[in-house]
Design a protein around this nucleic acid. Sequence first.
DNA 1: CTTATGATGTACT
DNA 2: GTACATCATAAGG
Length: 197
Amino acid sequence: MSAVVDRAWFNRDARELAVRLLGCRLVRRFPDGAAVTVRINETEAYRGSDDPASHAGRRRTPRNAPMFERPGILYVYFTYGMHFCMNIVCEEEGVPAAVLIRGAAVEEGEEHVRARRPGASGRRLLDGPAKLTKGLGIDGAFNRYDLAGGNELDLDVPGGRALTLLPGDGPVNYRATPRIGISAGKDLLWRFVTESE
DNA sequence: CTTATGATGTACT
DNA sequence: GTACATCATAAGG
């Protein structure tokens, strides 16, 4: 089995984790045995009270609570009445921080992603946070999914985990830009995109 | 290529 | 009531 990314690896600043996630792979396994592997190529960092764009920029609420919890769990939220977005929680417990996974490139199992993303193909399959969750079949059931531990969801998946994070091959060239779709905090360059795919 | 707009649920003022 | 860490589609250049 592949190397497991342990919880301590997630216990770091969101901006640093956002960079280090570039080039990492996500493996999604479905109850029917289908598997998809993707490579992360776009991320954004979100923090706490120093970050006006963050869901956790004010106080803890039922929605943003996962951002305050253990590093290595997912924070999956529902937005615009129809979309899910997936974050990986970081920093130590009690400190709100997370990295939004905004985009990825499909490496294996493209057929299964296409089945969930009618009309899309190639680079367009997972080039947006809600496209990514839809294409990988990630929804509210994955809120608090533990990348560094066991999960109820894994019981439905033959021989594996519903979602696994694998380390990248090494440092990746990237560029930092303002985050997308926010109104406050546009001066912060906390979006990170892989350069030269 | 670009900009504009509707869809839709939940959190929050 | 308004805003929202969005997307697909339509219309314009």
